[in-house]
Nucleic acid binder design. Structure first.
Lengths: 309, 309
DNA sequence: TTGAACAATTTGTCTAGGACAAAAGTATGA
DNA sequence: TCATACTTTTGTCCTAGACAAATTGTTCAA
C-alpha cells in the first residue's frame, strides 16, 4: 500500500493522494472514480512514476461537492463538467426556509458549535414535555429541518454527526429508564443491511416503550435471515423496520416480500420511515406507518385484536 | 448494485452473497478476494447467470476464521488451504476459554433470549459498581468474550446485535446523566468511514466524561476532512479514534498520518481499539491506548502537562 | 391531468490477468 | 546481537469491456 502524501511543493497545500485515499475521503469507490475519468474526463489525475493515479487536493474538494449534489438527486453526467464555482452556487440554492423560531434556535446552537447549550436545551424540553410529546413535537420536526439545512449545505457533516449523536443519547437514556415491561406485544426493531439510519427505530422504540410494549432493538443492518431467527428466538409479535429516503427501492420491495414470506404469519410487520416507495407501492401483509403519531393508535389496535389470546 | 440473495434451496440456510457483500462482512477487499481465488483456489465461489461471483455462507464463515488468524500473525498462504475444522481448532488455541462464571451467566442469558433478565442484570451491576468499574470490569471483558463466542459460532448474529444495542443503551443513558462539564480537555470522539463499531468510543466517552472531561461524540464514520473541521470548530484539545480488528490496515495507517498532518499540532491524537497494527506499528505524533484502564491516567497526564495554559 | 407500459439512457459495479511495491521472512556479515 | 541485503509473499493498482439497476423520456389509455 503506497503512501503518496508528498510534502507540499509550494505554500498552498498541494498534498497528493492515491486512489485509495480519495475513496476514503470522498466516499466514491475506486471503480466509480476510474469510470468517471473514462467517461466524463473528470477527475483526470496525474500519474506517478509507476503509472498510478495521483489526485490533487482541489480535485478532491470538487468531488466532494459533486457527491453532495448527487445525494440530493442531481445526476453525475449533468454536473461533473461544471466548474467548482457553479457547483457551489447550486448547493446554496435549494429548499425553502420555514423553520419555526424555536427549532431555528436549536439549529443555530448546532451550527455555532455550542454543544453543551444544545444538549441542555433539548434535555430541558424532554423533561418539560414528556417523552411522547418531545419526540412528536420536537425531535421529528427537528430531524426534518436539520435534513433540509444539510441539503442546502448550511450544515457541515460533523455538525450533523453531533446532532444525531446527541438525539440518540437522549432517547436511549430515556428508553433505558423506562420501567421494564413484559407486556404484549413484543416488538422487534431493526433495519435492513445498508440502512444506517437508526433514529427512526429509536423514536418508535421510545414511543412504544412509553406505552408499555416490550421492545427489543437489534440496532441497524440486520440481515433478513437473522431478523427471522430473532423473531423466532424472542417470540416477537411484531417486527418493525425503518427505511430512509436514500434506500434503494428495489432492495426495499424485494427484501420486504422475502421477509414477509419467511416470517411466521402470526407476526405483524410494521414499516415506516421517509422512503417514498412506502406511500406509493403496496405489499400484502404489512402495515405502513407514514407518520410517527400513528404509532400509538397502531399499538392500541394490535392490543384490541389480540386481547383474547 | 445487484443483491444476490437467492432463496434457500433446501432447509439449511443457503443464502448467497455478492463479492461486495463479502467485502463488507469479512473485511477483505474485492481485490484480495479475487487474487486469493487466483492464487490459492479459495474461496472458489459459484457464478450466477452473468458470470459474477456468488459466495456461500459457510465460505464466508471460513473467511472470517482466516481473517482472525491473519490478524494474529498467521500468513494467508499457510492457512487458506486448511479445512474449516482445523482453522477452528487453531482459533480455539488462541483465545482460550476462561470466561469467568459471572460473565458466562450473562452470555447464557443472551443466548437464551432472556433480554429482560440480561438488561436488569447489567443495570444492577452498573449501579452497584459505578460507571467506571462497570466498564472496566464488566463491559470490556464481556465484549471480548462475546466476540470470542461469536467467532466460534456460539452466538448468532441477532444475538450479537441485541447485546451491542443493550450495552449502548445503558452506557448512553449513563453518559447522558453525567453532570455537564466544560472542563478541559475537550475530547472529540469518532471513527473513520467504514468503521461501524461504536462501542469503543462510547466506553471511552463514558470513562472520560466520568472524570469531568468535555466529550463530544461524532458517532461513527466521520471522513478525515470533517474530523479536522470538527476539531477546529469545537476547539478540541484531543481527537480520539477507535479501530476494530477488521479495519483494513492500509487505510488505518494512511488515514492516521493524513489526519495527523492536517490536524493542528496542539491537538492530541489518541487511538485505541482491538486492531493489531496499533500495537505493532509506530506512527509519530499519536498516542496509542492499548487498554481501557489507561484512559484515566492518560487524561491525568494531559491535565498535568497543560495545567499552566 | 394522472397513470401504466415500454424504450432509451445513464450510471455503478463486476469481470480478467498482468504488474509491482510494501511487508514479512531469510541469509549474510559486522 | 544487531544491522543490512536478498527472496518470497501478499495486497493494491492497472486497463477496458460488459451489463443490470435506476432514471428519464415517450406513448397511449383512462
Amino acid at each position: 500500500m503506497p503512501v503518496i502524501d508528498t510534502r507540499p511543493s509550494d505554500e498552498s497545500s498541494l498534498v497528493l493522494h492515491s486512489i485509495g485515499a480519495v475513496e476514503r475521503s470522498s466516499g466514491l469507490s475506486k471503480d466509480t472514480l476510474r469510470v468517471w475519468e473514462r467517461r466524463y474526463g473528470f477527475p483526470r489525475p496525474q500519474r506517478d512514476e509507476h503509472g498510478e493515479r495521483v489526485y490533487r487536493s482541489d480535485d478532491i474538494e470538487k468531488l466532494r461537492l459533486i457527491k453532495r449534489l448527487i445525494d440530493r438527486g442531481y445526476r453525475p453526467g449533468k454536473i461533473v463538467d461544471l466548474p467548482a464555482a457553479d457547483l457551489r452556487t447550486l448547493t446554496e440554492t435549494l429548499g425553502e426556509d420555514d423553520t419555526p423560531p424555536g427549532l431555528q434556535r436549536l439549529i443555530d446552537a448546532l451550527k455555532g458549535h455550542r454543544a453543551a447549550e444544545l444538549h441542555s436545551h433539548l434535555a430541558q424540553l424532554m423533561v418539560r414535555d414528556g417523552l411522547d410529546r418531545f419526540i412528536l413535537n420536537t425531535v421529528a420536526p427537528l430531524n426534518y429541518h436539520v435534513g433540509v439545512a444539510w441539503m442546502k449545505g448550511q450544515i457541515e457533516v460533523h455538525e450533523e454527526h453531533v446532532y444525531t449523536e446527541m438525539i440518540q443519547s437522549l432517547l436511549r437514556g430515556a428508553v433505558g429508564s423506562l420501567p421494564a415491561s413484559e407486556r404484549a406485544p413484543t416488538v422487534l426493531l431493526t433495519t435492513f443491511p445498508n440502512e444506517l439510519h437508526s433514529l427512526g427505530i429509536l423514536m418508535v422504540q421510545a414511543l412504544l416503550g412509553g406505552k408499555g410494549a416490550n421492545c427489543i432493538s437489534l440496532g441497524t443492518q440486520t440481515p433478513i435471515e437473522d431478523i427471522v431467527a430473532a423473531a423466532k428466538g424472542h417470540q416477537a409479535d411484531v417486527v418493525a423496520l425503518s427505511f430512509s429516503a436514500a434506500f434503494p427501492t428495489g432492495h426495499l420491495l424485494d427484501g420486504l416480500s422475502e421477509l414477509r414470506e419467511r416470517l411466521p404469519p402470526r407476526v405483524d410487520l410494521w414499516v415506516g420511515g421517509g422512503h417514498p416507495a412506502l406511500t406509493r407501492r403496496n405489499i400484502d401483509g404489512l402495515t405502513v406507518v407514514t407518520r410517527l403519531d400513528e404509532v400509538g393508535a397502531l399499538l392500541e389496535a394490535w392490543r384490541a385484536t389480540h386481547r383474547a389470546r
